[in-house]
C-alpha cells in the first residue's frame, strides 16, 4: 500500500520529464540571453560584430524557383554584419563557439529581405522551449551541457557537425548556414523547401591569431586587400526531408544550386555602420520566399523583436539624454 503512494507521488514528475519542456515567453528568452547585466543599446545575442557592405551577383539559376527579384540575373547591394555569439559586445572573438553572417537586402520599399546565418548547419534542438533549456545548460557549464545532450538524442546531427568543425582564422573562411528551411515560391505558385549556405572561397588557418578583436582586425585588414567572396548555395529538399525540423541534416545527395556570389567590399565598426540599427529578423521576406512552420524559425522572429524593442528604446533614451547634456 505504502509503495503505491510513492508511485502516485512520482507519477507527475515522471510524466513532466517525458513531456514537453515548460513554455517560455519571448521576454524570458531574451532575459536569459542578455544575462544579469544587459549591455545597453546592443543586441541581446551576437552583440559583438562588424558592419559590412557589398553586393549579391546573381547568375539567374534560382529565378525559376523563386520570383524574388534578386534571383534574376543582376546585382543587388546589401548591408550585412559579421558577428560572434554571446551577449557581450567586448568579449574575445576567439572564445565564441559560433560565428555569423547577416544580410539585409532592400530591393524596394515593399520588397525587403533579412537573412541571419550561423556556422552550424543545424540546431541541436527543434523547438524554442528546449532551446531555452540548452542555453541554460550552456550557461551552467560543461557538465550540464553534456547531460543535456545525453537527454536529447535529436542533437546527434549537431554533435557530429561540432566534432569535425575547425574554427578558421577569418570570418571570410567560414561557411554560414541558413539553419532553418524556407520555401521558394515561383511565379506559377510552386513551392520548394530549401536551406542555403554561404561557402567561402579562401582557406585561412587559425594560427597566428591573437587579441580580443582578432577576427575583427583580420577582416578589416583583409577587405582592404581583396573582396570577400562567398558562393550562395541552395540545397533543395525532397519529400523525405522534414523542412520543419531544424535539428536534422539533409543528405549530401540532395540537389544543390549556386545562385551567385555574395561579395563584401567594405567593413565599418558596428557603431558607425548602418547594420547596427537593423533587426536581422529572418522572417522579413520578399515575395517569392516564405517561412516554413519550423518552430525555431518562427520563435527567432519573436525573440529578435523583443531584443530589438529593448535596444531601440535604449538607443532612443541615450539619444535624448545626449541632447539634454549638450
Amino acid at each position: 500500500m505504502k509503495n503505491r503512494y510513492w508511485v502516485l507521488l512520482l507519477a507527475p514528475m515522471v510524466s513532466a520529464a517525458a513531456q514537453e519542456p515548460p513554455k517560455v515567453t519571448a521576454q524570458q528568452f531574451v532575459n536569459l540571453q542578455q544575462g544579469e547585466a544587459a549591455h545597453e543599446g546592443f543586441r541581446r545575442a551576437h552583440a559583438k560584430g562588424i558592419c559590412v557592405t557589398g553586393e549579391f551577383r546573381s547568375n539567374g539559376q534560382l529565378a525559376t524557383y523563386s520570383e524574388a527579384a534578386l534571383f534574376e540575373q543582376g546585382v543587388t547591394p546589401f548591408i550585412g554584419r559579421f558577428s560572434v555569439a554571446g551577449n557581450n559586445p567586448t568579449a574575445p572573438d576567439l572564445k565564441a563557439p559560433v560565428r555569423s553572417l547577416a544580410l539585409s537586402f532592400a530591393m524596394s520599399s515593399t520588397e525587403q529581405w533579412r537573412i541571419a546565418m550561423n556556422t552550424p548547419p543545424v540546431m541541436a534542438v527543434k523547438d524554442p522551449h528546449t532551446f531555452y533549456q540548452q542555453i541554460q545548460a550552456i550557461q551552467a557549464g560543461p557538465k550540464a551541457i553534456q547531460a543535456f545532450f545525453a537527454e536529447h538524442p535529436e542533437s546527434s546531427d549537431f554533435l557530429s557537425w561540432k566534432a569535425q568543425y575547425q574554427p578558421t582564422g577569418s570570418f571570410a573562411a567560414e561557411t554560414y548556414n541558413s539553419i532553418n528551411a524556407f520555401y521558394l515560391i515561383n511565379s506559377e505558385g510552386n513551392e520548394q523547401a530549401v536551406r542555403w549556405a554561404m561557402q567561402p572561397k579562401v582557406f585561412v588557418p587559425a594560427d597566428n591569431l591573437e587579441g580580443v578583436d582578432a577576427l575583427h582586425q583580420e577582416i578589416t585588414n583583409r577587405v582592404v586587400k581583396e573582396d570577400i567572396v562567398f558562393d550562395w548555395m541552395f540545397t533543395l529538399a525532397n519529400e523525405e526531408d522534414d523542412e520543419n525540423n531544424p535539428a536534422k541534416a539533409w543528405p549530401d545527395s540532395r540537389e544543390q544550386i549556386t545562385a551567385g556570389q555574395v561579395v563584401i567590399t567594405a567593413v565599418t565598426p558596428q557603431l558607425q555602420g548602418e547594420c547596427h540599427g537593423i533587426n536581422y529578423d529572418p522572417l522579413v521576406l520578399p515575395t517569392g520566399i516564405e517561412a516554413t512552420r519550423d518552430p525555431i524559425l518562427r520563435a527567432r522572429s519573436a525573440a529578435y523583436a523583443e531584443s530589438y524593442r529593448r535596444r531601440a528604446k535604449e538607443a532612443l533614451m541615450g539619444e535624448l539624454e545626449g541632447q539634454g547634456n549638450e
Binding site: T25, A26, R298, S301, A302
Partner: peptide, 9 residues
C-alpha cells in the same frame, strides 16, 4: 508580443 509559438507569425 509574448509568444514564441509557431502561430505567432
Amino acid at each position: 508580443v509574448r509568444s514564441l509559438e509557431p502561430w505567432q507569425l
